[in-house]
Simulated assay, not measured.
Amino acid sequence: MDSWAIDELARPLAVAFATVVVIVAVLVEELHLPRTSRCPIPSLFRDLTRKRHMNRILRGGRDYCVSYLRMDVGPFMHLASVMHDTHLLVDTRHVSVEEQLEIFLHIVGHNTKNRTMRIEFLRSGETISMYFNNFLRAVCALRNDYVQPPNGTCHPEIETNPNWDRKGLTQNVLAIVNLDLRFTYVLAGWEGSANDFTVLRDALSQPQPKGKYYFVDAGYTTMNGFIAPYRGVRYHLKEHNGRVQVNHKELFNLRHSMLRSRVERAFAILKNRFKILTSHPFFPYKTQVLLVITCCIIHNYIAGIDPNDQILHDRNMQEEHLVLSQSRSQREQREENRQWVELRDTIAIEMWRQYSSPT
């Protein structure tokens, strides 16, 4: 056999031998390391797999990222940087803040069980649970930054829209949502068995903005600070479709319903983004309370940082909204209700006058 042929055969054998030597060297070095310092080859594979998984999500295109994380890449990376900058979360030896955020968003966005997340992220169930709860507490610490009560100024859409602006009066939807579809107040923690007045009394125990009144559902009465639509008069938007309003009560109910639809839409967006809010909860009750608050905070965060968010602009969503009621002594309630009924009449009649007068 020619010498060149022998060289050609020996070359792959030499490469194979070198590979074996490297593997043996790694194993020998592993055996000499303390047990806590060993890094087996399978863990290297898992780390590489996780890195590829993260890159696939963040670089797979906007639709892919929104579908998986329920937000776009830009807001995702910005939220991770907020966690870094505020020191609410830190990179650990094995899990970055970005992966902690990804774990949390996938669970709340798709109502994913822990056992599924173990397979998805190649992590133990204890690790998934620990970082989920760490992130839950970290986001709740940002509540005052992203969930803020209305200030004393009038919302631009109210101020410039002739349908809403009436002689300087301002208004807010009592269902804790403003016209930007952001939550301005979140009260969580009451069980479903608690009656409406108990929950309302808890909310009213906190400082309330001055000079504000709230629109409430037709199932509640007009009273101090709360204005309900006229009973026995067309209300829902579909009932007004293609018909002309014939009096001040119908006009008032139409515009009341238009504002109410904003509340319905905000809650529809929230539940569509975070499927965990529409499913049977499998977390402890205290965690469920924090989840509601956290999802509202992230909702407000996305609404503020990503005006082109896909889920935020899906107008096909419809959901029920929150309503409030109040009970007082019958004598006091009748008197206060009469005053607020008169205010409703004043607003509605003025609306009708401007609506029906020639331009």
Score class of each variant (00 low, 15 high):
D85S: 10
P34S: 06
I57A: 05
L48M: 14
S81F: 13
K51Y: 13
T49G: 12
Y64I: 01
Y64H: 13
R62D: 03
L89W: 03
S81K: 13
M54T: 11
R35V: 11
E29G: 12
V90W: 04
S37C: 01
L31Y: 12
V82S: 04
V26C: 00
P40G: 00
R62W: 08
S43M: 15
F76T: 09
R52G: 05
L31V: 13
L69P: 11
I41W: 06
L27Y: 07
P40A: 01
T36R: 02
C65Y: 08
V66W: 09
T49F: 09
R70L: 09
V73Q: 10
M83Y: 01
D47Y: 11
R70E: 01
M54S: 14
L69E: 05
P34M: 04
N55S: 15
S37M: 04
L27S: 03
I41Y: 06
R56A: 06
E29D: 06
L33S: 07
R56F: 02
T86R: 05
D91N: 07
A25K: 13
L88S: 01
V26S: 03
N55C: 13
V82R: 09
L58R: 08
L79N: 07
D85W: 05
K51A: 06
R93F: 01
I57S: 07
F76R: 02
H87T: 11
A80T: 14
P40K: 07
V90R: 11
Y64C: 06
L48D: 04
S67R: 08
D47H: 04
P42G: 00
M54E: 14
P75W: 04
C65H: 10
